[in-house]
Amino acid sequence: MNTFLAALFSGTSRGAIFALVALGLVIVWRGAGIVNFAQMGQAMFSTYIASTLITNGNSYWVGFFVALFAGAAMGALLDILVMRPLSNKKKTELLSSDSMRAAVPVIASLGILGALQALAGILWAAEERGFPAPAKQEGFTFGSNVMPFTAFDLFVISLVALTLVITTLFFKKTGIGLAMRATALNQEVAKLSGIRTNRTRTLSWAISGAASSLAGLLITPTSNLSPNTLDLVLIVGFTAAVVGGLDSPAGAVLGGFILGMVISFVTFYDTPEDVFLSILAVLLLVLLIRPRGILGSKDVRRV
């Protein structure tokens, strides 16, 4: 029973973070039609910035907010410097086919991932370092029992919940949010309505960058920080996004929690070594049964 509760709690708090990662991927996919494989590289880099600030005597919150800002700035720069020039090049021969148009931005994002990881290695060395948590990482005590649930878990879950509420309100209630949704759904009609689609697209990259940086800040206290630590998080986030539906923000959240539970239960009841195989199994299962994901729309984009 205790194992079950522990798995459930750990699945919830991990799932919250994966939901954030998946949400970041979904926002850029909807906004720009690109799966950004560099996303957690950006998160790693901004977490390093936070880590450097904090070890140099600044408060956790200074590091926290600077990292969020850095994540957003990196996302926007990446779009302006790499992805936008690439999408303006559609007329070249190599990019004249659908399949290459889909492949080339992925290759570019992998290049960015490689560059960020190498740069982090140069700046901060490759060995792992810890990253502080703003709340206690010991379980709550209930009478004489130590519960498998920590103050930090509570912090993670409430912060993610807050983020989800804010993003939902932003997308549903503001004009910029409407412009971003319109751009994602139908660029031509958006342009004809006077929406500056280039700008809204850059904004999706920035929001996604901030969301994934938040994920980085929340996951590194339990997993340590190195140039490659967040690769696995990206894989899980990608799987979560596909499970929920790449074009559905709500699906991303759902997928994140499903993956969190799967990983947590495999870790507690089986062995951590099976985690990857179980992720692969979940991914293949979803792709075979419901290729557009649980909440994905029917034919917005071809799988």
């Binding site: 004009g175 409407l178 412009a179 949704r181 319109a182 759904l185 009609v189 958006a190 309505s193 006077g194 929406i195 729309s297 917005v300």
Partner: peptide, 14 residues
């Protein structure tokens, strides 16, 4: 995927 109201107000965003 957008509501009627959203479709119309989209045209006036700018």
């Amino acid at each position: 995927e957008l509501s009627v109201e959203e479709n119309i107000s989209m045209g006036s965003l700018f």
